[in-house]
């Protein structure tokens, strides 16, 4: 990493892959040999002339030879990003932020609950857990998407589903004819998911509304707040705790988060417009 955390390093675009109608994956190669990161961390990505935004890392932490980001084209920077071609360059600052508690969760059942693009920041955690599969109890992924066409990484999810050591349940908000899986909100999958509430760590990533309903449902199962981890999203400009934009009460989401233990931020999530 550059000596000054505000100055980006250049990364070469290896591939831009369309995922769903509005999401895509960037495969970047670092100029230095390796890019090490922890599951849950993010980078600031800069597209020349368009600007810079925070995007979580969605690749495999055990394969640091390439840097993978999946994101949705929603604003000017991500739209410029989508138009990048192999051989183009973009600026990267990072990695920043806290990680999913993949170590602390060892010995526990792990339930990963996510919706929409929220699967992208959790994929590194899935890779890491599966790489050390023997050290965890049940591993459960509950994933909600808008429609079957909006499901991210469908092939990979199929691969996970076919494993005998992982429970994967996908639900969509609505579906046309050929869909044979669940239709309904992701929280509906929680009551029957196979985990022992006394020994479970939950990872949640998704829109804040989803986080709210998901934590409620987990509490009904008897999970305690300090075993639930959530990833938060706020406006970010610097990613190093100086610009002030990402403040969530006393926390800077960029360096105290994005992954928080739920009991630390529960009070704040109950206040509106905080």
């Amino acid at each position: 990493m550059n000596t000054d955390p505000m100055v980006p390093d250049l990364f070469r675009v290896q591939k831009v892959r369309k995922e769903t109608l509005d999401t895509f994956t960037l495969e970047l190669s670092p100029k230095q040999k390796k890019f090490r990161f922890e599951p849950g961390q993010f980078n600031m990505l800069y597209v020349s002339g368009a600007g810079e935004i925070p995007i979580s890392i969605s690749g495999n932490p055990n394969q640091p030879e390439s840097l993978i980001h999946t994101t949705r084209a929603v604003g000017s920077v991500t739209n410029a990003m989508r138009k990048l071609k192999a051989g183009d360059y973009l600026g990267v600052r990072g990695p920043f932020g806290t990680k999913w508690p993949v170590d602390k969760a060892m010995g526990d059942d792990v339930v990963i609950i996510t919706g929409g693009i929220g699967l992208a920041p959790l994929r590194p955690a899935v890779y890491d857990i599966l790489a050390k599969r023997g050290r965890y109890g049940n591993v459960v992924l509950l994933y909600g998407a808008r429609t079957p066409e909006d499901i991210l990484y469908p092939k990979e999810i199929m691969g996970w589903r076919s494993r005998f050591d992982m429970d994967v349940h996908v639900t969509v908000d609505r579906a046309a004819g050929s869909w044979h899986s669940n239709v309904g909100v992701v929280t509906k999958l929680i009551p029957k998911a196979p985990f022992d509430p006394q020994n479970t760590t939950a990872f949640i990533c998704g829109p804040e509304v989803m986080i709210r309903f998901t934590t409620q449902e987990l509490k009904k199962r008897g999970l305690s707040d300090d075993k639930i981890y959530v990833s938060m999203e706020r406006n970010m400009k610097c990613a190093i705790g100086f610009c002030g934009h990402c403040q969530l009460g006393p926390y800077f989401v960029c360096k105290d988060g994005p992954v928080f233990r739920y009991d630390e931020i529960k009070r704040l999530l109950e206040i509106r417009e905080v």
């Binding site: 002339g49 368009a50 600007g51 610009c243 934009h245």
Partner: peptide
């Protein structure tokens, strides 16, 4: 101490700058 970032590019697209400004 809050700040924001401003990115600007010259007309030719050859030079881009990042400025930090008070916010």
């Amino acid at each position: 101490f809050c700040s924001t970032m401003e990115d600007s590019t010259d007309l030719s697209g050859e030079i881009a700058e990042r400025w930090r400004t008070w916010d």
